[in-house]
């Protein structure tokens, strides 16, 4: 699984950071970005899904890394 923040949509609610600090980092303005290449270790997949579900801007997406 891979997680990604759409920088055009993020408005800095910081909800993803609140539920999954391991996967997201914030810049000085509070806008979020996935950490590194966004690959989600299996034990954090549920947190990644919660980050998607709690983002009011629908800015976060997850994709299956199995995909070509």
């Amino acid at each position: 699984m891979r997680v990604r923040v759409d920088g055009e949509k993020c408005q800095g609610h910081n909800r993803c950071f609140a539920v999954a600090k391991e996967l997201f980092e914030l810049d000085e303005y509070g806008y979020s970005h996935e950490i590194g290449d966004g690959v989600v270790p299996p034990e954090l997949e549920e947190k990644a899904r919660l980050a998607v579900a709690n983002c009011p801007e629908r800015a976060i997406s997850i994709a299956d890394t199995e995909e070509a």
């Binding site: 408005q11 609610h13 909800r15 919660l50 579900a53 709690n54 983002c55 009011p56 801007e57 629908r58």
Partner: peptide, 9 residues
């Protein structure tokens, strides 16, 4: 799962 917009959107 709580994407509320209490702070607006």
């Amino acid at each position: 799962e709580n994407p509320h917009i209490a702070f607006g959107v």
